[in-house]
Write a protein that binds this DNA or RNA. Structure first.
Lengths: 202, 202
DNA sequence: TTCATAACTGAACATCCGTTCAGATCAAAG
DNA sequence: CTTTGATCTGAACGGATGTTCAGTTATGAA
């Protein structure tokens, strides 16, 4: 009389609409926490609650898993940005960009972390894609600064460098902000906007 | 009659004063390029020109290799900073800090990259040590800002946040600056100082 | 020239890695 | 109830991982 508790096949209640997103969420969290190279497919599978082989119903390989997460993040970023109505005044546009950048990134700490730290773990072709999307996002900021300079509203020595400096300052908020801290997101936005406003002032 | 070209022991010309530094340099370069977790002891050994086992004459284990590199970098940072004569005027101190930070970091791109990206690969005890050193460095900037605010020279809403924002902006220079570019290091220093000066202006 | 020791090799250890796949079981449609 | 396809298991693949160590040779001092 033998009884096998562990089955060797499809498990009760299993459904790709549930497992699929769980694979992505779990991979994102583990990649953010420990790094892509340090996380094994078996670890991801264990946290999802399946065997490692089952992951390959949802991704072609580990590299695609990383790339799809980063690609999805960048698409979300550009889509969300495009959904904001375009303004005219460079100062208002810069304030809008600043506030958008901060709250968008603070709501996606894991994705931001992975999208920056794991660039070197992308294959060359995948890297080129992500890099292109990132560039597209930064180009808007550069355009804002250029327009502001042209209209005599901003005092910026080098537009390209200032673009990267502003992005670096803004993204840096993700290293210290925690939701349970003393400041709300809008308060943080205002503090950074005050700094950025002065940084580019004439 | 047999002849063995490959020896099984100490190689001609081998000396720890030469191999030791080469191990450290090679590990730093590979960790910066591919990440700690993605680099194997055998890869490091191959680039140094020894077998993997020989590395253990120079480090207790892989974790110590990483920690010693980061620890060495932070010590260098604090020592180099301490060697600069202390000034009185907060504005002059902030300019000095800005210029120091930029050229020190631009001269050590690999070490900067590793010291930031590989924090999560440190054991908890090692992490605490590095974190403490980093905090000590940032504390000087915070003191400068606090003094400047007290003397009415700076207009800063939140000293702690501004400290981190300034550091983030400054360190961001390492992501784009390359030695063969169009700007010299002093020129880059001046551009960033101009931005920082305005960022904290009253 | 002798000899201690510094420096390294080569092999081995147990364990982990990403990925594949035949087969088993479940879910859902007919 | 039957059937089809979706979902997962468990085992296996070849190879890589960090680390240890007995043995071997070069070095440099005595």
């Amino acid at each position: 009389m033998f009884s096998y508790e562990g089955s060797m096949a499809r498990t009760a209640g299993s459904h790709s609409d549930i497992t699929g997103p769980r694979v992505a969420q779990t991979a994102l969290r583990l990649f953010a926490r420990h790094g892509y190279a340090a996380v094994s497919m078996r670890q991801i599978a264990a946290e999802v609650g399946v065997q490692a082989g089952a992951l390959y119903n949802y991704t072609a390989d580990k590299q695609s898993l990383l790339f799809d997460l980063m690609r999805g993040h960048m698409d979300e970023l550009l889509d969300a940005r495009a959904a904001v109505p375009m303004l005219q005044d460079p100062v208002a546009r810069l304030e809008g960009f600043t506030r958008f950048h901060i709250h968008f990134h603070l709501e996606r700490l894991d994705a931001v972390f992975v999208s920056y730290m794991e660039l070197r773990n992308l294959s060359p072709e995948n890297f080129a894609v992500i890099e292109g999307l990132r560039r597209r996002y930064e180009d808007e900021l550069e355009a804002i600064l250029r327009d502001g300079v042209q209209q005599g509203l901003f005092g910026v020595a080098d537009t390209k460098i200032t673009t990267l400096a502003v992005i670096a300052m803004l993204t840096g908020v993700t290293t210290w902000y925690r939701a349970q801290g003393r400041l709300t997101v809008p308060e943080v936005e205002s503090i950074y906007w005050d700094m950025i406003r002065k940084t580019v002032s004439a």
